[in-house]
């Protein structure tokens, strides 16, 4: 399983490089804040820590703080990206 996880990791890194390599510079900021929101995926680990009873109260405390921090990253990241992209307009004002 470990080997498989590393395999997935390496493939995903190459996929990420391919996806991003040709992005036009005008989209650098939305791309950055959009991918920044994706890094909030650590919410999954935070939910496991906060929601499952094993490990006792301290694990729940750490988990709940982690959930809050990850949600700031996720919600803030996506909303701010959407706000920026809403401003990118073509000539004539029609929104993409």
């Amino acid at each position: 399983m470990m080997g498989l996880l590393f395999f997935i990791f390496v493939i995903a890194v190459f996929l990420g490089i391919e996806l991003i390599a040709k992005v036009p510079s005008q989209l650098h900021t939305p791309l950055m804040s959009g991918s920044n929101a994706i890094s909030g995926i650590t919410i999954v680990g935070a939910l496991v820590a906060a929601g499952l009873p094993q490990g006792g109260a301290w694990v729940t405390v750490l988990g709940v703080i982690a959930v809050a921090a990850a949600m700031i990253n996720v919600v803030g990241g996506y909303l701010v990206t959407d706000r920026m992209l809403a401003m990118f307009k073509r000539k004539g004002g029609d929104k993409p």
């Binding site: 990791f9 390496v10 996929l15 990420g16 490089i17 996806l19 991003i20 791309l31 991918s35 994706i38």
Partner: peptide, 8 residues
């Protein structure tokens, strides 16, 4: 997801 962000 982490790898995608790391790469980008």
């Amino acid at each position: 997801a982490g790898a995608l962000v790391g790469a980008s």
